[in-house]
Design a protein around this nucleic acid. Structure first.
Lengths: 192, 192
DNA sequence: CATGAATGTGAACACGTGTACACTTTAGGC
DNA sequence: GCCTAAAGTGTACACGTGTTCACATTCATG
């Protein structure tokens, strides 16, 4: 698995690397691959699963819902950015395969993102600031927030690790999220 | 070029299809490929160029800056969505290669998006509603808007063409953009 | 209509690919 | 310390790959 991640990180994407190259990178003979996965698709799906399993755990442990809304934006952006940096290869893989992968992979990633969006909507619902927002609109807003955070991680992965210009990226994302939350204050859900 | 687009649309992505398969799809012998492009990279870059050239033209012709801000959101979302649907294969290609493509391709796409963002920022600056926003913040806002529209097109491409549930997607994107613009009303640029 | 450029052809090359199969090595629980 | 399941090995096959080169065809324009 790690060999595959390394190759995908330095090459274009998963479909561009072969079973034999992965095996070579892992220091193992090609046929040994089959001892662990039925085929390349299975490997890819496992990598995606792993990524989101641990991401869900991080986000769950953080218990964001019990924080004051003030400062939550900065905190969660930093938490997320930290996690992305710590799992660079894994996230690079997911970002690349989100649109370029197999249908199975794309669906898996999509489903996980939907789950994250739902979780965020549920968290936001607990804040007074969102009490005037309808259920549907809560999901629309969460969707926008999730997309903004995804874009942030794509960008963090695009600059090289020790460049440290991530700060500018994070500040921009924070600004955008604050802007969104400002809009929420004036928002009126027709069917609230 | 069209043969390549068809294959990429039905397969995973560009790096997964071979020169020989493109030639076969085009009804031509493999070596004939070299009469038109130096290699596959050149083909890919040309496709990206073409996509954005015509997109820039559409957006330029629309002269959005001369419209009232009211109704502009709905109009531009519809214009954009229409264009994406009319150039489904082209956009599918760009979306897939945005992160999974060659470095050259990725850079080309990235640069084009930056151009679009700058153009939007310049357009927004003409509206009274944005007169209290600093130059930098204008770019941050435009960035958020562009990302939201990109996400919309990714989703339009994900549902099959004659499904006609695009409307729901467009409504969501419109809501999100209106939310952003609501935030702008309360936004205060510190260095305005 | 002729001529020259643009486009398409076919054979050949060296090499990378996924996977099957029988075999050997490694490691952990009784 | 043995023995069994897991992991790794080496060989072999049929096939797809990019690119080369000399040759054939098409087509526009003088």
């Amino acid at each position: 698995m790690h060999a595959a991640l390394e190759l995908v990180s330095s090459e274009a994407n998963f479909s561009a690397i072969s079973l034999r190259r992965i095996a070579r990178q892992a220091g193992v003979v090609p046929t040994a691959f089959y001892r662990h996965f039925e085929d390349l698709d299975a490997l890819g799906l496992t990598l995606i699963e792993d990524t989101f399993r641990s991401l869900r755990q991080i986000l769950g442990d953080a218990a964001l819902a019990s924080m004051p809304l003030k400062g939550l934006v900065r905190y969660s952006v930093e938490l997320f950015a930290h996690y992305v940096r710590d799992n660079r290869l894994l996230f690079q893989f997911v970002v690349k395969e989100r649109f370029a992968g197999t249908v199975a992979m794309r669906e898996a990633i999509h489903n996980e993102i939907v789950l994250l969006t739902n979780a965020l909507a549920a968290d936001l619902a607990r804040f007074d600031e969102f009490s005037h927002i309808s259920q549907d609109d809560l999901r629309v807003i969460s969707d926008l927030v999730v997309n903004t955070v995804i874009t942030l991680s794509e960008r963090i992965l695009d600059v090289d690790p020790d460049n440290a210009e991530d700060d500018a990226l994070m500040l921009r994302a924070e600004k955008q999220l604050r802007l969104i939350f400002m809009g929420v204050g004036r928002w009126e859900s027709r069917s609230a």
